[in-house]
Design a protein around this nucleic acid. Structure first.
Length: 434
RNA sequence: UCCUCGGUAGCUCAGUUGGCAGAGCGGGUGACUGUUAAUCACUAGGUCGCAGGUUCAAGUCCUGCCCGGGGAGCCA
């Protein structure tokens, strides 16, 4: 019977057995008569120990000549060992070299610069740190999908290629679509609204595109956004849903990714605090007053600047909803606030620890006349929005929704400085490859 | 688009007042039976981003350009 091939992550269940591991050698330490081959197989990392008098002379010499990132099949016996970080090691009986590189591996053990790492993103992804980040990213996506599925949300994904539809004409990527102009989607929200009229509770989840020339740690030109939209939910229902989702997300990562968070040296206390109580609420008007007291020069009508967000979030240990922004600072589809006509029924959710806005949401304008008036004053091309206006012509309905940015959420929960590390292939203004 | 910082060995960086181009890591050779970014010895490795200028002499000073980083605005 052939020796079974197993994943590194499952080795703990095979102590004492002979197994095959297929992977890459990410590092090697050698002491003349013993080689320590550090192996990774995508599922985890393990040390394979090769003792000179336990393998053939040829195998020992061959291992000596291995370069970093050689691909291998290693056969050996799984052994528990207190000296191993994962608790197990592989005592090697034989190795099969699939490919031994002839050039040195570009990524070394010491620190690298950002430019170099991004040029080598295809190799950088192999590191333990990047693996931990992708594991958390996957857990967050999974927690979002299961959260919504369990609450009977219908998945109704929106198109990536669109006509002139979105939040604003600037920042659109234009492309040639069989002699017509088309654009990469900035948001799936308008489509989600249509789907909500069809299925009640819906969401879309996909990449969105902003051609803004932003060069900050919080911006990508291509990022993933989850956009739930619910029929007959008002502004308050909307915020309650957001709070449940975000708390659930943090709880899931704390429960399932402790090793990854430890490897990333994430301080867990601020994350635990997030789950310990209700999120805070402050109105935009109160926020302006408070910010002025704290030294900001913001005045009514301005959007919160990056520094304002930082100042504000430093006052709280859990996420904070900033509600009811002035009309002029927000998009055309947001519902006028009946209690304060200068503002709209919206809320941004600001993450703690200076991570800033992760959610933008609102109740939608369901009054046809008010919506048309606002769209005209914004100079929108009404022809391309007729289908959207139909939602107010055929059974208009109170409804609300929000968009949560995946990368900002992952960066916050992982405690990372920069958003570019949390997506496999970041797209930034001056970087298209790899 | 604006502000700001940077570009020196494969990588990360140092280079003082303008005066012979440096270190660590990585590579190569050798030693080592428990290493965790292994260690030790020896060794190879340079268009100082590009183009001009000043000077007896420029990595260093000046001008222009190219390529990146950080931030602002905008937003998730």
């Amino acid at each position: 019977m052939a020796t079974p091939w197993i994943s590194v992550k499952d080795m703990i269940d095979h102590v004492g057995e002979e197994v095959v591991v297929k992977g890459w050698m990410y590092n090697k330490r050698s002491s003349g008569k013993i080689h320590f081959l550090q192996i990774r197989d995508g599922s985890g990392f393990v040390q394979a120990v090769m003792v000179k008098n336990e393998v053939s002379e040829e195998a020992f010499e061959e291992a000596k000549k291995l370069w970093i990132e050689a691909s291998l099949e290693v056969t050996g016996t799984v052994r528990s060992d207190d000296r191993s970080a994962s608790g197990v090691e592989l005592s090697v009986s034989s190795i099969k070299v699939i490919h031994n590189p002839t050039d040195e591996y570009p990524i070394g053990k010491k620190d690298h610069g950002v430019d170099f790492l991004l040029d080598n993103r295809h190799l950088w992804l192999r590191s333990q740190r990047q693996r931990a980040i992708m594991t958390v990213r996957e857990r967050i996506i999974w927690s979002w999908r299961t959260f919504l599925h369990d609450r009977d949300f219908m998945l109704a994904d929106s198109p990536i290629i669109t006509g002139a539809i979105g939040e604003g004409a600037s920042g659109l990527f234009e492309l040639d679509y069989f002699d017509q102009k088309a654009y990469l989607a900035q948001t799936g929200q308008l489509y989600a609204e249509a789907a909500a009229a069809a299925y009640g509770k819906v969401y879309c989840f996909g990449p969105t595109f902003r051609a803004e020339k932003s060069k900050t740690r919080r911006h990508l030109t291509e990022f993933w956004m989850l956009e739930p939209e619910v029929a007959f939910y008002d502004h308050k229902d909307n915020m309650a849903l957001q709070e449940d989702l975000v708390r659930h997300t943090v709880e899931q990562v704390l429960e399932h990714c402790p090793k990854e968070l430890a490897l990333l040296e994430r301080d867990l206390e601020p994350l635990k605090a997030v789950t310990a109580g209700p999120f805070y609420h402050i109105s935009y008007r109160d926020a302006v007053v408070k910010l002025n007291e704290l030294g900001s020069s913001i005045s009514f009508g301005d959007d919160l600047g990056a520094e304002d967000e930082t100042i504000l979030t430093q006052q709280y240990d859990r996420p904070i909803f900033v509600e009811c922004y002035p009309k002029g600072a927000k998009a055309f589809y947001m519902k006028e606030n009946p209690d304060d006509l200068e503002t709209v029924l919206c809320a941004d959710l600001l993450a703690p620890e200076g991570y800033g806005e992760i959610i933008g949401g609102s109740q939608r304008e369901d009054d046809l006349d008010k919506l048309v008036t606002r769209m005209n004053s914004d100079g929108l091309d009404m022809d391309s929005y007729q289908w959207y206006l139909d939602l107010r012509r055929y059974g208009t309905f109170v409804h609300s929704g929000f968009g949560i940015g995946l990368e900002r959420t992952v960066a916050w929960i992982c405690g990372l400085h920069h958003i570019r590390e949390v997506i496999p292939w970041p797209r930034t203004i001056y970087r298209l490859n790899p």
